[in-house]
């Protein structure tokens, strides 16, 4: 196995950029939340790759993997709360488009 760290980091960077552009360019709040999940997933790949490539025999370097564990927990909680907020917004305004939700502006 000779894949170097940079290959994994490049994959993580590309997925992060995809999620970033999804959040930036799409107006549907559901799709924006999905792209947020992609960005978290990209950071998970980077963390797992770092902790794998810095492991030694004595020091197993589980810190990155444990971080990913917590990030998955936070992502699950975040999705639950975010989707509940979106459902409430849809009940009030009948839309999930982010640029139509401008009640606070005027």
């Amino acid at each position: 196995m000779n894949m170097d760290l940079n290959a994994y980091l490049t994959v993580a960077g590309i997925i992060f950029s995809i999620g970033f552009f999804g959040v930036l360019l799409r107006r549907n709040a559901l799709v924006m939340l999905m792209c947020l999940e992609l960005m978290l997933n990209a950071s998970n790949i980077a963390l797992v790759a770092y902790s794998r490539y810095n492991a030694t025999e004595q020091n197993q370097m589980m810190d990155g993997n444990t971080f990913v564990f917590f990030i998955i927990t936070v992502a699950a909680a975040e999705v639950a709360v975010g989707l509940a907020i979106i459902v409430q917004l849809f009940r009030k305004t009948r839309t999930v488009m982010a640029d139509e939700l401008n009640t606070l502006r005027d």
Partner: peptide
Amino acid sequence: VLLNAYFLAVLQILVYAGAIIVLF
């Protein structure tokens, strides 16, 4: 799995693909 993080791979499928996507 390629990075030897087997437990995280199972967790990823269970939590992300199993719970979060179903919620979405």
